[in-house]
């Protein structure tokens, strides 16, 4: 049985210690929101007792602090930061470190041992100042409401296998056996005829409304300028064709199967060897697209064909920026 109130207290001690001792200037941590048990990422500086008091760690810390770092990169540049991460966040952080998007020496990493996440909206809004949140091998309990892990809205957590990553500080202990990556949903789809599969994915592409939430919430989708966006370039009559050619329109704004497919397939390729399967894109999608069904197509190849472990170590080479002489060749029709 894990009691997240005591683990949150321990986390607060570590965070306030780091700030007090001046080891870091700012800490990115989850705090309790207005709409408990929802949490939100918050930037905490020294002396912000009001925010520090609200620092929390629970299965409802469903957002990624790494996304926060990515989004506030310019503002936080050159500052020494503490960052509280779950296992999947640390995995994503390692991907960004591999790509030199962030500097390891700027960061103090506080890892929380995560047993899985739960959708806050499935639990009633708790009354009272202190809400006991506990979990065990079977599920999560908030006050009197209990839900099994399988029933808590986070399918990717059920197959999460990350553990014992090496952060600088650790909070909590695992209370549940980790799962194994599982590709059953892919196997079911791949058993279909290609034509049926095309229909399935065309329906997925068609429903996309291009709000780009999947891209924006993704902790590793960190390009400063996305290939899909028009880009910020001044085009004047004197702009050279060579300059214009550097900013082609890969996907136009039309909401159609083909243009949406260009967006989603491109994203899938850009995520090859980088996707940590945190599943946040799928949960954020406002029209409920099963985005893991498409991302897992590259995840499956990366993990099973190339045996590449995503984000294990900041010193590993990125998947697409490396190669092996033993990489498989195109087997023509029989790939």
């Amino acid at each position: 049985m894990r009691d997240y109130r005591s683990e949150s207290a321990r986390l607060r001690e570590i965070v306030s210690g780091l700030l007090e001792r001046g080891e870091v200037e700012l800490v990115v941590a989850w705090t309790e929101g207005e709409d408990r048990p929802r949490t939100r990422e918050t930037l905490i500086g020294k002396g912000r007792e009001d925010l520090l008091r609200k620092v929390v760690w629970s299965p409802f810390c469903t957002t990624s602090t790494v996304t926060f770092l990515k989004k506030n990169k310019a503002a936080l540049a050159g500052k020494r930061l503490g960052v509280v991460v779950k296992d999947c966040d640390l995995q994503a952080l390692n991907v960004l470190l591999q790509e030199h998007f962030l500097k390891r020496e700027d960061l103090v990493i506080i890892g929380v041992r995560c047993d899985g996440l739960a959708e806050a909206d499935l639990f009633p809004r708790p009354e009272g100042a202190e809400v006991p949140i506990t979990s065990d091998g079977g599920g999560v309990t908030v006050g009197k409401q209990r839900r099994a892990w399988e029933d808590s809205g986070f399918t990717t957590c059920l197959t999460c296998s990350y553990e014992d990553m090496k952060p600088d500080h650790v909070v909590g202990e695992y209370g549940r056996k980790k799962g194994k990556p599982e590709w059953g949903h892919l196997a079911r789809l791949q058993a279909l005829e290609p034509g049926k599969r095309r229909e399935h994915y065309a329906a997925l592409f068609e429903s996309c409304i291009r709000c780009y939430a999947c891209r924006e919430v993704c902790p590793v989708c960190a390009c400063v300028e996305c290939a899909i966006d028009p880009g910020e370039r001044a085009i004047t009559p004197r702009t050279a064709p060579s300059v214009k050619a550097c900013a082609p329109v890969w996907a136009c704004r039309e909401r159609s199967v083909s243009e949406n497919a260009v967006y989603l397939l491109t994203r899938t390729m850009h995520m090859a060897g980088r996707c940590v399967r945190c599943g946040w894109c799928e949960r954020a999608c406002p029209v409920g697209l099963p985005l893991m069904e498409i991302l897992d197509l590259s995840n499956d190849a990366v993990r099973r064909v190339y045996r590449y472990e995503v984000g294990r170590d900041p010193a590993d080479p990125p998947f697409l920026a490396s190669y092996a002489e033993t990489d498989p060749d195109d087997k023509g029709a029989g790939h």
């Binding site: 390729m269 197509l297 590259s298 190849a301 697409l320 195109d330 790939h335």
Partner: peptide, 23 residues
Amino acid sequence: NYYARRRLLTLKSVLTGIGIEPE
């Protein structure tokens, strides 16, 4: 071509996955 091979065959897995025949 080594980089191309890894990149393009990963793409091939994705395209095959969504039902574009490997041929």
